[in-house]
Amino acid sequence: MLSAHHGDITAEDVDAIVNAANSSLLGGGGVDGAIHAAAGPDLLAECRRLRDTALPEGLGVGEAVVTGAGNLAARWVIHTVGPNRHRGQRDPNLLAACFTNSLRRAAGVGATSVAFPAIGAGVYGWDPEQVARVGVSAVRAFLAEDDAITQVRFVLFSRDVLAHFEAALANSST
């Protein structure tokens, strides 16, 4: 099942939520800041441990990593770093990789339900319509190849961005 709705991703009752993180994994603005604030200090502590061990240089663009979810309803947070158009990272394949790699990581820990924000559509400068098209296409392609994930929700804070995801979902189902 694939859907989109207006809401607060930090309140989603799913196995995993996806964080549109920055490469430091140490919190930031937008979705990243909201997730860190709602999850509480355990999330930041786990991200710091990752930085101290497996990811001393940070997380690369398009890659994804899993942590616990602290105080969130979800069990896991999948952190992914979207491409920053303002820095010349304009390849839609990098954006698609955020969605695909997040789903791979979610399936790897046993998640069956995942909630995504509009990765890259905020301060990273991607057009929400393109994010919706790329995201929906990447998720549909993953779900066609792997049946471990049974529910994916796009949870959008803006009704304008939601409209783009609804259109992408409608156009991709034909």
Rank of each mutant, 00 (worst) to 15 (best):
L95V: 04
V131G: 02
R104A: 05
N171P: 02
R104P: 00
G108A: 01
G135Y: 06
P92W: 10
V109Q: 13
L95N: 09
S113L: 06
S137N: 07
N93F: 01
E166N: 12
A168Q: 12
A144R: 12
R105A: 15
R153E: 15
G125Y: 12
H86Q: 14
V152W: 00
A141L: 05
F165M: 11
T112N: 15
S113N: 02
A121G: 11
G88R: 09
C98A: 07
R105K: 15
F116G: 09
T150H: 00
G108K: 00
D127Y: 05
E145P: 01
G82W: 06
A111Y: 02
F142M: 08
F157C: 04
A115N: 03
A107Y: 01
F99L: 10
V131K: 00
A138W: 03
A121C: 13
L103I: 06
V161C: 12
P128N: 07
V134G: 01
E129G: 09
R105V: 07
A111Q: 13
L95Y: 07
F165Y: 13
S137E: 13
V161D: 15
T80Y: 10
D147G: 07
A121F: 14
I149T: 12
L103H: 03
S102L: 06
V161A: 13
H86I: 07
P83R: 09
A168T: 01
